[in-house]
Amino acid sequence: MSARMVLLGPPGAGKGTQAERICAALNIPAISTGDIFRSNVAGGTELGLKAKEYMDKGEYVPDSVTNAMVADRISQPDCVEGFLLDGYPRTEAQVHELDRMLEERGLGLDAVVEITADSDVVVERLLNRAQEQGRADDTEPVIRRRLEVYAEQTEPLAAMYRERDLLLQVDGIGEINDVTERIMSVLRDALNAH
């Protein structure tokens, strides 16, 4: 089953875990912008060197570089049958750029899955993870601010995809296997409807 999709969800909602499971089930690559940056930097590509200049200064990598990296990644042979994007798009401008990249190939997105999670549960999860991994910077105020920023940046994207009938919201609270089953159930319905 081919699927071109975007995965949205707040920090601590279990996106990484679910992305792996979705991709294994659908036999498509998971594409995280963080991984793309790291592989381009490690590979010393022209885009990687540009991204590294910004990253070394602690600045955001500009959309022009990020978009070019994503366009390059989704044009790879392993993406012919689909892909799952995690961490992209993050802005309305990137949504339009992704549309353009796909339209150039005569393609479109099949689904946008948003893993939802109650803020208090996510804060508790992230505080536990911070303790386990020794992340002193993950304090409750910092985590709550990250959730606010996520909501501010992502709500407009979710609304855009909702208008296009692409948004599938799935409760990310519960046992990992239960969440995976909820996601796969709504995905199967959506992909079969296309």
Results as ranks from 00 to 15, higher is better:
residue 96 H to Q: 10
residue 49 L to I: 13
residue 52 K to G: 05
residue 111 A to V: 08
residue 22 I to E: 06
residue 164 R to F: 13
residue 44 G to M: 07
residue 133 Q to P: 10
residue 163 E to T: 07
residue 30 A to L: 15
residue 47 L to R: 05
residue 80 V to N: 08
residue 31 I to F: 08
residue 92 E to S: 12
residue 103 E to P: 12
residue 46 E to S: 14
residue 67 N to F: 01
residue 125 R to Q: 12
residue 67 N to C: 07
residue 102 L to Y: 01
residue 143 I to E: 00
residue 42 A to Q: 10
residue 85 L to Q: 01
residue 64 S to Q: 13
residue 39 S to K: 15
residue 78 D to A: 02
residue 33 T to R: 01
residue 157 L to P: 00
residue 68 A to P: 01
residue 115 I to F: 05
residue 75 S to M: 11
residue 156 P to D: 11
residue 40 N to H: 15
residue 24 A to E: 15
residue 54 Y to A: 06
residue 167 L to C: 01
residue 167 L to V: 00
residue 147 L to C: 04
residue 160 M to I: 14
residue 40 N to C: 12
residue 45 T to M: 03
residue 51 A to M: 04
residue 93 A to L: 00
residue 85 L to Y: 02
residue 133 Q to V: 15
residue 165 D to S: 15
residue 146 R to E: 04
residue 109 L to I: 07
residue 115 I to E: 00
residue 112 V to D: 03
residue 131 Q to V: 14
residue 60 Y to S: 08
residue 41 V to D: 09
residue 31 I to R: 09
residue 120 D to I: 06
residue 91 T to H: 02
residue 147 L to Q: 01
residue 39 S to M: 14
residue 142 V to M: 14
residue 63 D to G: 02
residue 26 L to Y: 09
residue 51 A to G: 05
residue 127 L to E: 13
residue 41 V to F: 13
residue 146 R to M: 11
residue 111 A to S: 03
residue 23 C to M: 07
residue 72 D to E: 12
residue 131 Q to L: 14
residue 150 Y to H: 09
residue 38 R to K: 05
residue 75 S to F: 06
residue 34 G to Y: 10
residue 152 E to D: 13
residue 100 R to M: 11
residue 145 R to M: 12
residue 118 D to N: 09
residue 90 R to N: 08
residue 103 E to Y: 15
residue 119 S to V: 05
residue 23 C to I: 12
residue 90 R to G: 10
residue 151 A to V: 13
residue 56 D to H: 02
residue 151 A to Y: 06
residue 72 D to K: 11
residue 155 E to P: 10
residue 76 Q to D: 01
residue 166 L to S: 13
residue 134 G to Q: 03
